[in-house]
Simulated assay, not measured.
Amino acid sequence: MSDERSHKFSEGTGFDDPYEGFDLDPPELEVNPEEVDPVDSRVVTDLLDQQSIPRDKVSVGDLIEVGLSYTRINRFEEATETFERAARFADDGSREEQEAWTNKGVAHAELEEWDEAISAYRESIHIDDDSEHAATAETNLAYALWESGRTEQALEHSERAVEIDQRFPQAWFNRGFFLLERGLVEDAVNCFDNAIRLGFRNAHVIEEKARALEELGEDEEAERLAEEAKEMRKEAEEELVQE
Rank of each mutant, 00 (worst) to 15 (best):
E231T: 04
M232C: 03
E218Q: 10
F177R: 06
Q153K: 07
S119V: 12
C191A: 14
Y121C: 03
E220L: 00
V205T: 08
H204L: 01
E116A: 15
A142V: 05
Q153H: 10
E112R: 05
W114C: 09
A135R: 03
G105Y: 04
L184A: 09
E123W: 11
S124P: 06
N202P: 03
L213M: 01
S124H: 10
E215M: 00
E181I: 00
R167G: 14
E223R: 11
A229K: 03
E220T: 12
E223Q: 15
L179Q: 14
Q166I: 10
Q166F: 12
T136N: 12
A210R: 00
D187P: 05
D115I: 07
G183M: 12
E132A: 12
T102L: 11
I206T: 02
E132M: 13
G183A: 13
A154F: 02
E110Y: 15
N103R: 13
E163Q: 11
R211P: 00
S148Q: 15
E223S: 15
R150L: 12
N202Y: 06
V185F: 09
A117N: 06
R150N: 09
W114L: 05
E159W: 01
V185R: 05
A222Q: 08
F173W: 00
R150F: 10
R182T: 07
E147R: 12
P169S: 14
E110M: 14
W146Y: 05
K104A: 06
